[in-house]
């Protein structure tokens, strides 16, 4: 399975939400990383066919999605941003309903729903009302729902929003589990969501593709551009014009993690870049202090 985005653009009231976006996806987890408003949801909505792009097209194995028509829907599983589902439905009922919507035969749908509930560890909660679930549980119902039709492509829009750290980790593991033999497109603005699970990272900023590649490759590319500087309170002021990715204070002073092409200070030393640094590096302006 191969998904190609070809020159996708979308404009809202004269402002580009997405500009000439092109990318190819094959197997594995793709982390679509970008800050709020970068255009992630816009891209996903165009992909799942609920928003029309101004330009460009989406191809599946070389075929235009428009031409595939409604059958395309059986290839995708989709978890929207901020889903609430129906408060009055029980978990199992909701999954059954989603299988009906997806045109899955009755027995098969029910069997699949139960399997998935056990995979996302919600078998116990199957008779709970959706309205009574915690955020993490609801997201797990959401991913189970997306997996019902055994899709080739799983699309998750900010699935970890509002989860606590533990739920976040559990959810990450779940995604890895589900990524076998399929394409997972996971949009997020949180680097740690994808840092250790994504095979590929797609960096999006202001509707434009900054960079796509394996996390290792992306961090390698900025090798030698991430520095650590230890300063005192007095000398902190003169460092604040730099792109600082983190700041930590201990009894030896303040440790700054700085991103810069050139050595930013005499006593700066190299450190190993991480994905967060990559994100910051390609964002034109750094954190302003």
């Amino acid at each position: 399975m191969k998904v190609s985005f070809e020159g996708i653009s979308k404009k809202y009231k004269g402002k580009w939400a997405l500009k000439d976006f092109s990318s190819n996806l094959e197997y594995g987890i793709y982390g679509l990383l970008g800050e709020n408003g970068a255009g992630k949801t816009t891209l996903i909505n165009i992909f799942v066919g609920i928003l029309k792009s101004d330009q460009g097209r989406v191809l599946i194995n070389g075929r235009d999605v428009e031409k595939i028509g409604i059958d395309f829907l059986s290839h995708i599983g989709y978890l929207p941003q901020y889903p609430q589902f129906y408060k009055e439905f029980t978990v199992l009922e909701f999954l059954k309903y989603m299988s009906v919507l997806k045109g899955i035969p009755k027995e098969q749908g029910e069997k699949r729903a139960k399997e998935l509930l056990s995979m996302v560890n919600l078998s116990e909660a199957k008779d709970m009302k959706v309205g009574a679930l915690s955020g993490g549980m609801r997201q797990r119902v959401g991913i189970a729902q997306a997996m019902l039709n055994d899709p080739d492509i799983l699309i998750l829009d900010e699935p970890t929003a509002g989860l606590d750290p533990q739920e976040r980790i559990r959810f990450r593991n779940l995604i890895t589990k589900f990524s076998q033999n399929r394409i997972v497109l996971l949009a997020t603005h949180i680097v740690s969501d994808i840092e250790h699970v994504a095979n590929q990272v797609i960096l999006l900023k202001n509707g434009e593709l900054l960079k796509q590649g394996a996390p290792q490759k992306l961090t390698d590319e900025i090798k030698g551009k991430v520095w650590s500087i230890t300063v005192t309170d007095d000398s902190l002021e003169e460092m604040l014009h730099l792109k600082i990715s983190s700041m930590m204070r201990d009894d030896q002073g303040i440790h700054l993690r700085v991103i810069a092409d050139e050595k930013p200070a005499d006593h700066a030393v190299h450190v190993k870049p991480n994905l967060e640094d990559v994100f910051l590096y390609y964002s034109s302006e750094g954190e302003k202090w």
Binding site: V48, G49, I50, I70, L73, P83, Q84, L101, K102, Q145
Partner: peptide, 11 residues
């Protein structure tokens, strides 16, 4: 519930 979005991605 924003289910309108999800509904439209089903058959």
């Amino acid at each position: 519930t924003e289910m309108n979005v999800l509904l439209l991605t089903t058959k």
